[in-house]
Amino acid sequence: MTGPDRLSLNQVTTKRWSLPDAVQGCVDAGIPAIGLWRDKVAETGVAEAAKLVRDAGLAVSTLCRGSFLTAPGPDGRRAALAENLRALEEAAELGTDTLVLVVGGLPDGSRDLPGARARVAELLAELAPHAGDFGVRLAIEPLHPMFCADRAVVSTLGQALDLAELFPADQVGVVVDSYHVWWDPELERQVARAGAGGRIASYQVCDWTLPLPADALLGRGHVGDGHIDFRALTGLVTAAGYTGWIEVEIFNEQVWDTPGADTLRTVVERHRAHLERA
């Protein structure tokens, strides 16, 4: 069952709220977990953020996100490694076992897609043992192919698993994000593959709505407002053995401009209507 005890609010869904506001909102709405963003944590301070969430009785489902891995050259590689090590340390201090990785797009002026993907694999090889030391799993999030140039050269769940399976499952897993994977004709097979290997680190949900805005990143809607069959997708994830948090992550200016308490009421209602009996 995917009841309310598995619901998590990804903090970006209420982007206008500070971390204290988001934590209190979750408490008031009866949402038991929160997915944190590093910029909001930085505003509060990692130690204070950890205390705030802990004192509220919330779990931290994920920390978003690690730094891009595709920068070229020794300096870019060192900077990416250092920033991701800081992110791992923050995740451990915040009490989550999952650091979401959006791997990065093509560097400015580059058309070398194979080279960018190779750098992702190389840096993962350096980061994975450190993830194990921190007790935090790197969760590779494939993004829809329209984001390949600027945000993620890993576009499918299969590609993400090809990378993750190079490392122990407790060090590197994958994110199943409904917005990014729902279209994939290989989805059923790849979700089953991820489950068989114990690789599903996070299940994130929002809907694919049309028309897409000028900034396609902001085209996500509440569950049930768009084109994704959430009962089918959640059924796949459940059949694959995933029993973790179901994290609602919405990038949408209209949602962000809505009072946060109203947004959380909708989140809870849509979870009940579309996910609880999946």
Rank of each mutant, 00 (worst) to 15 (best):
Glu122Leu: 14
Gly224Trp: 03
Trp183Asp: 06
Pro213Phe: 13
Leu217Arg: 10
Leu218Arg: 14
Leu36Trp: 02
Trp183Gln: 07
Ala92Gly: 15
Val136Tyr: 01
Asp162Tyr: 12
Ala149Glu: 13
Arg151His: 12
Asp150Pro: 01
Trp256Val: 05
Gln24Thr: 14
Gly109Val: 11
Ala118Val: 09
Asp108Cys: 08
Met146Tyr: 14
Thr234Trp: 00
Pro213Gln: 10
Gln24Cys: 00
Val153Cys: 09
Pro129Ser: 11
Ala125Asp: 10
Phe230Gln: 07
Phe251Val: 07
Gly30Asp: 03
Ala92Ile: 08
Gly109Phe: 04
Glu186Asp: 15
Val41Tyr: 10
Ala214Thr: 11
His274Tyr: 15
Ala152Gly: 14
Gly73Trp: 07
Ala80Tyr: 00
Val154Cys: 06
Gly73Lys: 01
Gly195Asn: 02
Trp182Glu: 05
Val154His: 00
Gln190Ala: 09
Val12Phe: 13
Val248Glu: 01
Asp177Cys: 07
Glu48Gly: 03
Val120Gly: 06
Asn84Cys: 13
Ala261Thr: 14
Leu236Glu: 04
Glu249Lys: 07
Phe134Cys: 11
Glu141Asp: 00
Ala59Pro: 01
Asp207Gly: 02
Gly219Asn: 03
Leu124Thr: 02
Arg199Ile: 06
Glu249Met: 04
Ala80Arg: 04
Asp150Trp: 14
Gly260Tyr: 11
Gly95His: 02
Gly241Ala: 08
Ala164Met: 11
Val174Pro: 06
Ala214Trp: 00
Ser67Arg: 13
Ala128Lys: 07
Thr13Phe: 12
Pro213Asp: 03
Tyr179Cys: 05
Val181Tyr: 01
Val255Tyr: 09
Val41Glu: 03
Gly115Phe: 12
Glu165Arg: 07
Glu186Tyr: 10
Val181Ser: 04
Arg78Val: 12
Pro185Tyr: 05
Ala261Pro: 10
Gly226Trp: 11
Pro211Met: 11
Asn84Arg: 09
Phe134Thr: 13
Ala118Leu: 12
Leu19Asn: 04
Gly226Val: 11
Ala116Arg: 10
